[in-house]
Nucleic acid binder design. Structure first.
Lengths: 277, 277
DNA sequence: CTTGACTATCCCGTTGCTGGAGGCCGTAAC
DNA sequence: GTTACGGCCTCCAGCAACGGGATAGTCAAG
C-alpha cells in the first residue's frame, strides 16, 4: 500500500490530480482511512494509473476513460472508442489547419505589401508584364459592386487563387454608373465555370504607378500615367488594370488613406511616330 | 442605437455573449440606461463586433483581442500578434498530429491482428518468406530482457519501423539464462548505428505456426513445429524467429492468454534424403 | 514535546461562454 | 383589472481538468 505522495512519485500524477481522479471515481484508492481520511493505493493500481496516463496522452476525456476502464481490458475491445476519438481529433486538426492557413495568408499578405512599400516608389514606372492566368467576372454597373464579383470568384476557385485581386477597366472614360469592368484574381489553374471566366491576360510593355489613398482619388494617379504615356507618344491598350495591393484588411477595415493600388496600362510603343511634345 | 437584441441579430453574437463581452470590457455598449440597465449599441460598434468575430474565428483569446483593439487599427500593425498566435496554433497542430498518428498506429495494429486471427489457423503452415530488412540488437542473457533491445531500436529508428517486433533465437536448445538472441524490428531503410545492427534477413522456404497464449508456453508450439519438420526430414536453419503479432497492448497490458506469436523456421528441404518416418 | 514532512478539505481561478431562476417594464388581449 | 407575452436585467451554476493557496489534522523522528 502506497500513500498518496508515494503513489504520485511512482505514477507521475500530481497529488492534486490523484485526489481529483478519486473524486471523479476514475482511480479510487484501495483504502481510505476512515479516521484521518488518508488515501492508500495498492500496487495493482499503478497499472491502472499507467493506462489512464496513456489514454490521457491520447487526449481522451476523463469520462470516456472511466467507461473504458469499467468495461474493457484489452486494446482490441476499445477500437471503436479509438476510432470515434480519432474522428474528434481529426476534426480539431482540420480546424486548426484552416486557422493556421488563414493566419499565414494574412501575414504573408501584409509582408508582401510592406515589401512593396519599401521597394517601390510612387513614380511612374515602365515594366514588362508577364502573361498571367486569371479568373474574372465581367460586370456592368457601379465600380463599388465589384465585391460581389470577387466573392463569386473566391467561392469558385478558393485555394487556387495565387495573387492579389485586380480589376480590368474596359471604359476609355470614367463612368460613375454603367461602367464596364471585370474583377478578377490570378489563379494557378482552372476552367471557366458558370459566370466565371478563366483566361490568360497578355503580357508586354506597360507603364504603372502606385496609388496611395482612397479609391475615389484614383483619378490623380490616372492623370500621372496618361500624361506620361502621352509625352512618349504611346497608345494605351484596353483594358487597363488596377491591382489592389493593399485594400481593406482581412481583419481591420483599415484607413483608406493607407490603401495602395497599382494601376497598369499596357502600351504600344509606336516607334514609327515621333513622341509628341 | 440598437438594443442588445437588435445588435445581436445584426452581429450574429448571442445576447449572452454580448453581455459577457461587456463585462470583459471587450465590447462596451455606447450607452447604458442608468434606470433600467438596458444596453444600447451605436452602429459603429457593428464594425468592432465584426473585427472581434474575425479574430475569434482565428482562435485569438479574448484578452489578446482586447489589447489588439485598444492599441491598433490596421492589419499591418498586428503582424507580431498574428505571428505569435500562429506559433501557438502550430504547436497545438503538432500535438494533435502526433496524437492522431498514435491513434492510427494502435488502430491499425489491432485491425491487422484481428485479420490475422480470422485468416490464419493455428496449424503448422508452409510458407515462403521474403527477405526483409531489419534493425536488431544482439543480446545475451534472459529472454525477458529483450524489452530493452526493443526500446533501443525504437529510439534509434522510430518512425522508420514498418512491421511487428520479432526475435531471432540463435540457441538450438532452450536456455533459461545466458540465452543468445536478438530482438529486431522490420524497418524501411537505415544504416547500422552504435549497437543497433541493420541487415537483411534472408527469405526462403519456411514452416510457421501461430501460438496463442503466454510466452512461457511457447514450448508446445515449438514442439509442433519441430515434429512437423522432422516428419519431412528437413533441416532447421538457425536462427529461428518469433514474430510478436499480438503481445501486451499499447494501452492495456492485455491478458497473456490472448497473446499471439508466430514462430518461423527456415528449413532446408534436403531432397536427397527420404523423409524419416 | 517539538519539528518538519505529509495529508486532508474547501474554495477560487482558469477559458468562453450557455442555461436557468427570478425580477422589472411596457404593451396588448381578454 | 388582470393576465400573458416579449424583451431586458442581474446573479448563480456549470462545463474540463486540473493548479494554487489557506487552514487544519497526522505521522515519524529526534
Amino acid at each position: 500500500m502506497y500513500s498518496i505522495g508515494e503513489f504520485s512519485r511512482i505514477t507521475g500524477l500530481s497529488i492534486k490530480t490523484l485526489r481529483f481522479y478519486h473524486e471523479q471515481r476514475l482511480l479510487v484508492p484501495t483504502k481510505v482511512d476512515s479516521g484521518t481520511g488518508y488515501r492508500y493505493y495498492a500496487p495493482q493500481l499503478v497499472e491502472t494509473a499507467r493506462i489512464i496516463t496513456r489514454l490521457r496522452d491520447l487526449d481522451f476525456p476523463l469520462a470516456e476513460i472511466t467507461s473504458i476502464l469499467a468495461e474493457h481490458n484489452d486494446d482490441a475491445d476499445i477500437i471503436e472508442y479509438l476510432e470515434r476519438h480519432r474522428a474528434v481529433i481529426e476534426d480539431r486538426l482540420r480546424q486548426y489547419r484552416s486557422v493556421s492557413k488563414a493566419l499565414e495568408q494574412i501575414i504573408s499578405n501584409e509582408r508582401e505589401a510592406r515589401q512593396t512599400m519599401n521597394d517601390e516608389s510612387f513614380d511612374v514606372q515602365e515594366k514588362t508584364l508577364t502573361p498571367i492566368l486569371v479568373a474574372g467576372v465581367r460586370m456592368q454597373g457601379k465600380y463599388s459592386d465589384c465585391g460581389q464579383g470577387f466573392s463569386q470568384i473566391g467561392k469558385a476557385f478558393g485555394f487556387r487563387i495565387c495573387g492579389k485581386p485586380m480589376m480590368l477597366c474596359y471604359d476609355s472614360e470614367y463612368r460613375e454608373t454603367d461602367a464596364n469592368f471585370e474583377p478578377c484574381m490570378p489563379i494557378r489553374k482552372g476552367e471557366s465555370v458558370g459566370g466565371v471566366n478563366v483566361r490568360e491576360l497578355p503580357g508586354g510593355r506597360a507603364v504603372t504607378v502606385l496609388h496611395r489613398g482612397p479609391y475615389n482619388q484614383l483619378g490623380r494617379s490616372y492623370a500621372k500615367l496618361i500624361d506620361y504615356v502621352k509625352t512618349h507618344g504611346w497608345t494605351i491598350q484596353s483594358p487597363t488594370r488596377e491591382v489592389y495591393l493593399k485594400g481593406p484588411g482581412m481583419i481591420f477595415k483599415r484607413n483608406p488613406e493607407k490603401y495602395i493600388t497599382e494601376i497598369q496600362m499596357l502600351v504600344e510603343a509606336d516607334d514609327v511616330k515621333a513622341p509628341v511634345s
